[in-house]
Design a protein around this nucleic acid. Structure first.
Lengths: 221, 221
DNA sequence: CTCTAAACGAGAACACTGTTCTTGACAGCC
DNA sequence: GGCTGTCAAGAACAGTGTTCTCGTTTAGAG
């Protein structure tokens, strides 16, 4: 039953956006009264939250699947596959992506306890791969050193706190490089999904692939 | 009168987001009946569009002001100032930024004839500065060459079309570099304003400055 | 000065939304 | 049988965008 509600809500999200998902339409869709819906859903925000968590989970699952399908001995290849899956899922699920990473709705505050853990999954997965690559000595020391030179005390402390909080087995400059790469890929993805890239670059696929190879270079791989 | 409507709507946008701006509240705010509002506004979407155009214009104005205030003989400095202003305005006006660059609402289609011209202004301004820097021989030829090596036929044609469409006096690799930089800065800004950066890097200011210097290097300046 | 037409504002109404409350039907269990 | 809990339905309230109709005001032409 909860599943039917979620399925209907998901369909509305995909066809009409976040503001298009309405409890009455969900009730109409699955053939019950609106009031009956409140047996299974606390609130409209509660339903949106469920969709949000689902979006984060699907997204992270897609990244995980790509990593699992990659050659485990080819760490740069696995990282590439992860970042590529990160973008591909987003392009294929614009509504869910917009819900998860779009402008925050002032009225609605996402419950941190249910979202943060799952929102951080793709980043952590890539960070884990990068840590293994670093441990294997695959990361160019010159690149690390150059990044270290650009670090100031403030950001350095921030990255150290991040590494400790998420248990990333990486030196601060490597964390910085990984964050750089992630910001780049996520930024590209946001622009593409939200339509700000199309007027700038025409075949997004090819441009992303070139961005990906450059990102790997930037990572020292 | 139209100004009073827009001012009230802007206040609602800033305090409650796009979905928080309601015609009835605007009417209540300026002390007229809802129906009287339709004398000045075609539609709710029409009002949102007005806010959208205003946001784009303000944003571009902020970038222009920063460029105009910069030393005209220091082109890299002017580009830095432009990109810095791009981010600063966005952070200071999250609601307007979210409206302009957030997830597109399926029901609402922005009228292209009134938005595209103004949405492209900051990019064009930076591109103009970069073209002058390139004409002055300030762009490292090695950087251009390396970027050219990473270009394939598809994206190359896309960048050429962009340069022709917007009359950018730049070779294709330079256009590619500029787009790279823009994607990076915009991507960072989106992540910061939408709250996805805070869990990753703590002093956003310092991180952005380091991103900026690195971006200038990437541009060959 | 008068008359007319346009502009302006107000109110009611319709369809839609989220949410709550009350009522009723059914099942399982003592 | 009676009681308790779960489910569903309906009505109601407050809020929304939008349209229609009705008065009032104002400006300009004759």
């Amino acid at each position: 039953m909860t599943e039917a509600i979620l399925r209907s809500a998901r369909a509305q999200l995909e066809s009409a956006g976040v503001e298009g998902v309405t409890l009455r339409e969900v009730a109409r869709d699955i053939g019950i009264a609106v009031s009956a819906l409140y047996r299974y859903v606390d609130n409209r925000d509660d339903l949106i939250t469920a969709l949000l968590v689902e979006a984060f989970t699907d997204h992270a699952d897609a990244v995980d699947a790509a990593v699992d399908a990659a050659d485990p001995d080819d760490l740069p290849g696995a990282i590439t596959a992860a970042l590529r899956a990160y973008r591909t899922w987003s392009v294929q699920h614009p509504a869910q992506f917009g819900l998860a990473f779009g402008a925050p709705v002032p009225g609605y505050r996402a419950p941190a306890d249910r979202t943060i853990a799952v929102a951080v999954r793709p980043g952590s997965r890539v960070m884990g791969l990068y840590a293994r690559a670093h441990a294997a000595g695959l990361v160019d020391p010159d690149v690390l050193e150059r990044r270290a030179a650009r670090l100031d005390d403030g950001t350095s402390a921030g990255f150290e706190a991040l590494a400790q909080r998420q248990s990333y087995a990486l030196p601060v400059p490597a964390v910085a490089l990984a964050v750089d790469a992630f910001v780049r890929v996520h930024g590209f993805t946001v622009m593409e999904v939200f339509g700000q890239l199309r007027p700038l670059v025409s075949p997004a696929d090819a441009y992303f692939e070139s961005l990906l190879t450059d990102t790997l270079t930037t990572l020292g791989l």
